[in-house]
Each structure stands twice: as C-alpha cells, then as structure tokens.
Amino acid sequence: MTGSGYTFTPSDDCRLQLHTGVTGKASKMGHRLTIAVTRWRAEVEWSGDRPAGVELSAEVDSIDVVGGEGGVTPLLGPEKAIARSNALKTFDADRFPHIGFRTHAVDETDDGYRLSGTLEIHGVSREHTVDLIVEDLGGSWGLSAETVVRQSDFGIKPYSQLMGAMKVVDDVTVGFAAQRPKRD
C-alpha cells in the first residue's frame, strides 16, 4: 500500500493468534490450542483522520503453538512441536506459504471500524469481514479484533486422529491486539 499510514508487526508488541477447539468422541484427549503467528505485517493506509485500507500478510510457517487447554496431559515442548507440525501439514504450508487479507471497504462503526475485504488462505480467496474495536487509552489507541474462519471454506480439512474420534473444530478464531501511540 502507498500513502501515509501505519505498519504493524509482531515487533511492535502486536499479537496475531489462532485459537482452535476439539470435537469428537475422544475430544477430552485433545488440547484447545493457542497458536501465535510470529511473522506477519499489516499496513493501514489513512485518508485524513481515518483508515482507508488495510492489507495483512502472514507467513504460515511462522506459527508457534504457545499454549493448550484441556487434554489428558499438559501440553509441553515435544507435544507443542508435534501440534505445530500437524498444523503446518494441515495448512499445506510448503505449497501455500502465505495468508493474506486486503480490504475493499472500511466503514466506521460505533466502537471502531468494519473491514470488508478478501481473505486468501490455502490458495482460496473469499470475502470476509472483520470488526476492529478501537479504544481510547489516553496516550494511545487500543486495537482489537476477533473473527471466525471456517477451514473447510478454504479447502482445508481440519486435523483429526484416532479415525476421526478426535479432531480440530472446523471454525478457528483469529484474534488481533495492538496499541498505537496517538498522532499529534
């Protein structure tokens, strides 16, 4: 994107995470994962005093399993590595290394902005809407969003094991949080 604006990356103390669920007869054995995306970039283009466009790009192989709730045993280092490997296979990260979102409309809402655009995952593009909440924190703005993405809509078969008795829920929640100093 060109023009004046902001760029957000993980190094700016921003967070982009995925949250998964588990279903099936053996779901109590599985962990509900929190997965951080560690290499991504979001560019926000401004027009006057409001955002006019957003473009986000994330590298699939940068995912890192940072936590897991539930399961029979705690989610430790080796289990995190296995979960990461399974996620990379599910995403087919070698063939589809990037996820992208580009807006075609940014509309003001009561508590922030509605970002309408195209989300591309696994080589499939679909229209998607994200509601971005903006909070006045005094000297900075707090930004947050949470949206649900259905894996099967993008040609991804959710990970499963034990002949389907334990599988990742098709709907994955994507969360974003950041703070940005106010402009002068």
Rank of each mutant, 00 (worst) to 15 (best):
residue 180 R to H: 15
residue 123 G to C: 13
residue 172 V to N: 05
residue 23 T to I: 12
residue 65 V to I: 13
residue 136 D to H: 10
residue 3 G to D: 08
residue 104 H to N: 12
residue 54 V to A: 06
residue 139 G to F: 05
residue 129 T to R: 10
residue 109 T to L: 07
residue 30 G to I: 02
residue 64 D to L: 05
residue 153 D to C: 11
residue 110 D to E: 15
residue 167 K to P: 00
residue 101 F to V: 09
residue 32 R to A: 11
residue 3 G to E: 13
residue 162 L to Q: 08
residue 133 I to C: 06
residue 141 W to P: 00
residue 49 D to T: 14
residue 8 F to W: 02
residue 128 H to Y: 04
residue 164 G to A: 08
residue 182 K to M: 06
residue 21 G to A: 13
residue 146 E to G: 12
residue 79 E to S: 09
residue 16 L to I: 12
residue 16 L to N: 02
residue 109 T to P: 01
residue 69 E to M: 09
residue 9 T to I: 02
residue 145 A to Y: 04
residue 98 H to C: 10
residue 84 R to P: 00
residue 1 M to P: 07
residue 49 D to Y: 04
residue 107 D to M: 04
residue 107 D to P: 03
residue 55 E to S: 09
residue 108 E to S: 15
residue 183 R to A: 13
residue 184 D to W: 12
residue 144 S to M: 10
residue 45 E to S: 14
residue 61 D to Y: 06
residue 56 L to N: 00
residue 146 E to R: 15
residue 183 R to M: 11
residue 109 T to Q: 08
residue 59 E to G: 01
residue 164 G to M: 02
residue 87 A to Y: 10
residue 89 K to V: 04
residue 163 M to T: 13
residue 19 H to F: 07
residue 118 T to I: 11
residue 66 V to S: 10
residue 129 T to S: 13
residue 140 S to D: 15
residue 52 A to E: 10
residue 1 M to D: 13
residue 72 V to Q: 07
residue 86 N to S: 03
residue 122 H to M: 09
residue 121 I to G: 01
residue 65 V to E: 06
residue 148 V to E: 08
residue 171 D to I: 03
residue 82 I to H: 12
residue 5 G to D: 02
residue 106 V to D: 03
residue 35 I to K: 03
residue 71 G to E: 02
residue 105 A to Y: 03
residue 106 V to L: 08
residue 89 K to Q: 07
residue 163 M to K: 05
residue 34 T to I: 14
residue 168 V to D: 01
residue 133 I to T: 12
residue 26 A to V: 03
residue 127 E to S: 13
residue 99 I to A: 11
residue 132 L to P: 00
residue 83 A to M: 05
residue 10 P to Q: 04
residue 18 L to T: 09
residue 140 S to P: 00
residue 10 P to I: 12
residue 142 G to P: 04
residue 166 M to A: 13
residue 87 A to M: 07
residue 124 V to M: 06
residue 69 E to I: 01
residue 149 V to E: 06
residue 48 G to E: 02
residue 69 E to P: 01
residue 133 I to A: 15
residue 19 H to W: 08
residue 101 F to E: 06
residue 68 G to Y: 05
residue 60 V to R: 02
residue 137 L to H: 06
residue 34 T to Q: 12
residue 156 I to A: 07
residue 58 A to P: 01
residue 148 V to T: 14
residue 22 V to G: 03
residue 174 V to Y: 04
residue 116 S to Q: 12
residue 56 L to T: 11
residue 76 L to M: 14
residue 9 T to L: 07
residue 8 F to S: 00
residue 95 R to H: 14
residue 162 L to Y: 08
residue 38 T to F: 02
residue 179 Q to L: 09
residue 177 A to C: 12
residue 167 K to Y: 07
residue 79 E to A: 15
residue 133 I to M: 12
residue 97 P to N: 07
residue 138 G to A: 03
residue 144 S to H: 04
residue 68 G to A: 09
residue 131 D to W: 01
